[in-house]
Design a protein around this nucleic acid. Sequence first.
DNA 1: TATCTAACGTTATGTCATAACAATCAAGGC
DNA 2: GCCTTGATTGTTATGACATAACGTTAGATA
Lengths: 161, 161
Amino acid sequence: MTQTSFCCPDHSGAQDAANILLQAEARAARMGLRLTPVRRRTLEMLIAAHGAMGAYDVLECLAAEGYGTQPPVAYRALNWLVENGFAHRIRRLNAFTACAHPAHDHTAAFLICATCDSVTEAPAGAVSAALSAAAEAAGFVMDRATIEAVGRCSVCVEGTA
Amino acid sequence: MTQTSFCCPDHSGAQDAANILLQAEARAARMGLRLTPVRRRTLEMLIAAHGAMGAYDVLECLAAEGYGTQPPVAYRALNWLVENGFAHRIRRLNAFTACAHPAHDHTAAFLICATCDSVTEAPAGAVSAALSAAAEAAGFVMDRATIEAVGRCSVCVEGTA
DNA sequence: TATCTAACGTTATGTCATAACAATCAAGGC
DNA sequence: GCCTTGATTGTTATGACATAACGTTAGATA
């Protein structure tokens, strides 16, 4: 996997993992979306990974469990999860991560630790608003955004200081 | 090239292109950076492209002009330009674009038109500040950021409306 | 149950990016 | 001047990421 480090600064329990999955199931039910076995397993993997996973990492796991063995299998599941608000794509890492708050739509920012590779989802309401305003000043109508910060997570800052 | 459209909403003249290049040369001189022939030609291409260029597009041009013919040639020049503030990487497009204001360091946001593929660099001071604040709230120390908005540029909005 | 569409699986291919090593070139010390 | 040293350029080879196209299967609906 792209990262299996548990230096991850937040949501450390299995508690949260189960909670996220419940929220996701509720979302699927509410919106009439079909969270099929492949999609569900993919989402569970992302949640369990506590970080970002590459598409080929996901594929490897899916293949090991008897699902398809070719790239489109993983990409289809991942893209569906992203399009429907269950996961996010981390462009800097060419990877995917479970959405921490699938209950409601939101623009998210990602904090990527350069030391331990952990990825944390941060609320981005203010950031998104500022970006939208900057866009508007240029006559640009914003649809969606990619907001990713690279730096040191709280755990790694502690360790270095 | 990835995009040669001239739907590009701003800096429409050759005036600006020359000006950007002058600023870049001044920056290189001031910082003691070696803007070698390959690097300089690469930068000129990005400026002339009025949009983002993929690494392989750049490579094709360089090869046609007698420079190296293999990917690392383009990637080295492009990465050097990015690292030293002469260009930016647009992650959503897997492409590169000339920095519009190489005179001073800055965090930039990019406005990517989903219709005409134009890329506009927008001032991102406020956005960056908001992101930095959100990061800090999570105990994260931000180093640098990727900020990209997808939507409709002013020209394309006009056309559709 | 017949039909239709969404989802799944496969083959094949395309696109983006870098590791590793050899040759060359500019700058400073002798 | 000449040599050392590090930066730069070039090459070969390979790795990593992503999707087009098409056939098959499964779920919903009439």
